[in-house]
Design a protein around this nucleic acid. Structure first.
Lengths: 197, 197
DNA sequence: GACAACCGCAACATTCATGTTGCAGATAAG
DNA sequence: CTTATCTGCAACATGAATGTTGCGGTTGTC
């Protein structure tokens, strides 16, 4: 396989991309799917996968890194350190939902992450905590709320929202995502109950 | 193995119980654990497991059924059809959290459930919807909230709360659970933000 | 157009989990 | 106490998935 970062030919790069996309598709429906099934879905021979990825584990790890990089970009694009907390939360939620729809498997927790992926995940977590902390300082989150709990709840609802309901790229795929993001932030901050009665 | 419901000897029943408990322990830490590892944790020979359970799949399925039965009892004990919605929600949450702490693996989603377990899960879902629907009628949940979304959010937060934080049976193991249940219901209904400002 | 890289295919080696069988000794039940 | 059941152990069968290698043909690259 290719451990060295040597320059690859164009068709090889294409194979890698095709394989990772197929793997994501197949594994998101059946995490125990075999290399054979992935190869078939990708339209390549099984040996080609082994040529490009040292092992099944390596393939999954590389997918996780790629996915988490996109998540990190999605969060950064929401300007977590500078934008008003509410805006940052909404933006990050929408961006992350978009990324999650394409990396359902790679972003699912398969035990604790390791290596590069773990590092990026930690970065994302830190940035999330930053936003949540700023949100509390500015009164968007109550002062008595534990921030660790706040993050866990936010992640849980975000992940739940990402399940299903990515039904086909209709006329405007972003409309659904934007609405979903609004609902996530709204639910986490206001809850499901009435304000005061 | 034992397909027929014949009367088993006391030691056989004991084995079954021990195996299921060990399986829950081992599989909750590593869902891909082998029968060998489960047998070792249970202190029995691997062949004994196969004597009591037709296959790995059967073992897991039986565990799922047992776990969901306990969940169903936990929900029923909260009187979902008659108790005031807030009370029922709180009671069900506390009861379910207790059960979840002992059946982490068996209650995790391993693809859609089948057979008996699926039936019980559907029952539980129906009763949850009942409580949530009554909650909305009585104004505990806003009228504009989609009930399917409400259930999904509630389940997501409940599951999140069940992760970790079952640290040892201290002097009063229920104190932690009760506090956790309060926090779950409070978070879902009030959210993390201020009431009005 | 020449050369190197890449792919499909077939064949093989290896490892590992699952499930079975038979038997000798232990243990519950009546 | 007698009998049927249960367990551990050792051995075996099977099947499946992973990973490797070599070759002939194809496809980028310069």
């Amino acid at each position: 396989m290719n451990t060295t970062g040597r320059k690859l030919r164009a068709d090889a790069e294409r194979s890698i991309k095709t394989i990772m996309e197929a793997a994501e598709r197949v594994l998101s429906e059946n995490p125990a799917a075999t290399m054979e099934q992935i190869a078939e879905a990708a339209g390549v021979a099984r040996t080609t996968i082994h040529r490009r990825f040292a092992s099944r584990e390596a393939l999954i790890d590389i997918m996780a890194v790629a996915a988490w990089k996109e998540i990190a970009e999605a969060v950064d694009a929401a300007r977590p350190a500078t934008a008003p907390p509410r805006v940052a939360m909404y933006q990050a939620t929408a961006n992350v939902l978009r990324v999650k729809s394409g990396w359902r498997f790679a972003l699912a927790q398969h035990g604790p992450l390791t290596g590069e992926a773990a590092r990026i995940e930690a970065e994302v977590t830190a940035k999330s905590d930053l936003v949540i902390g700023r949100a509390q300082q500015e009164g968007v989150i109550r002062p008595d709320v534990d921030l660790l709990w706040a993050r866990r709840v936010y992640f849980a609802v975000l992940t739940e929202a990402a399940h299903g309901s990515f039904t086909g790229t209709g006329p405007d795929p972003d409309a659904g995502i934007d609405e979903l993001a609004t609902r996530v932030v709204d639910t986490v901050l206001r809850g499901l109950g009435p304000g005061k009665d």
